[in-house]
Design a protein around this nucleic acid. Sequence first.
DNA 1: CCTGCCGCAAAGGTATGACTTATTCAAGAG
DNA 2: CTCTTGAATAAGTCATACCTTTGCGGCAGG
Lengths: 232, 232
Amino acid sequence: MEIQGLPGRLLADLGPAIASGEIPEGAVLRGEELEARYGVSRTVVREAIRILESMRMVASRRRVGITVQPKSGWDVFDPLVIRWRLAGADRSAQLRSLGSLRVAVEPAAAALAAVHATDDQRRELGALAVELTVTARAADLATFLRHDIAFHATILRASGNEMFAHLGDTVGAVLTGRTEHQLMPHQPEPYAVKLHREVADAICTGQADAAEQAMRTIVQGALAELDATLGS
Amino acid sequence: MEIQGLPGRLLADLGPAIASGEIPEGAVLRGEELEARYGVSRTVVREAIRILESMRMVASRRRVGITVQPKSGWDVFDPLVIRWRLAGADRSAQLRSLGSLRVAVEPAAAALAAVHATDDQRRELGALAVELTVTARAADLATFLRHDIAFHATILRASGNEMFAHLGDTVGAVLTGRTEHQLMPHQPEPYAVKLHREVADAICTGQADAAEQAMRTIVQGALAELDATLGS
DNA sequence: CCTGCCGCAAAGGTATGACTTATTCAAGAG
DNA sequence: CTCTTGAATAAGTCATACCTTTGCGGCAGG
């Protein structure tokens, strides 16, 4: 999953630092300086920088150096960028953006899933809905989270749209993040769990509209809760 | 915008070749071979490969080489990947995916824009709606396209959500692509143009629901037309 | 004092050779 | 037949040299 080797270590250090604003927009890094700071060769520095450049987080120009680009230009859909932002000072802004994205995408995905899901996927969703209900009653947050992530990822995958499917990991990161940072009630709300069952039912029985509506209620609720917790 | 230098040239060649399936999944490239084929040094090859690797299109392993990864793992939101796929054999699949994404995102963006757009952005939208109406009557497809792209990009930006905003270029690529490949009527449909005016009106007057509905009609229409043209 | 030309120097870009390390595969020992 | 071991291979890293672009300062001329 991760970028390997020494360039990976550089990236794991520079990426979060830039994402969090610790290295601010407009800052200039020199390759030679990075070589010294990390005790690596030019090759390694250049490869790491190239990757950051392909994410539009930095731009490297001759006679100037490597300048940190304005946040507005970054590839905000890049999984690494999302993770780095979720980990740092930008966490709440990133959660808000992703919240809106979920409100847009997940209901549409649920509707498509009701039409396109395979039998296995429908079975899987039914099973996950049951698991969610049980672990919610038991207040087993860790297991609940795992199944919740699987639930949403399965629907995104079942939509049959590759782009939706790829948001599965991102949604997973959101759910993990909000659980880790106490942005959720200690025990999942029974109403939310009921809605998950409704979504699963609707998808299993091929009711696209019902699936879309129930899912919309879920993600709108999540967004509202987020806004409430983070303040406005 | 583009990746510069020799690695950029490598990328511009390998990326489309992989995206189009010309270099199939599972194929193995050797660094040394690429050096020879393009007449460049290791440095250059490695940097290009690193970028493809960060897009999850290839993976490089010792003693094995550089293997092309299954399409299902690619960073399908990366602008380069999208462009490469739009340019090659995958064009229709990519257009379908993006069509669904638009149906999900643009109505939501329109609703948000009705609330968050600045005065300048509302003015801009009004002006663009007028331009669309005029150029549609004149059947000036090139100008129409330019304004259409600006229209959708402005709404996405006005939504206030950075992730939506970044889809502006992608939507632009879709609109350009379908015009270039005769996936559109020779003269824009008057009804579609009317809907654009409705969206602009609704956003200018802050009517989120109306904006969302009109926009949904637009993008659903575009998707339906696409499905009809590409066949099923 | 301002303007424009010119050349230097600083920084990234590319090339290359040597060396390191991980990993596959096959040969040989048990 | 299995397990171990070793050699071959390809990527990973380093150090160095040289090329190319470009910003800036100085100098000449207006």
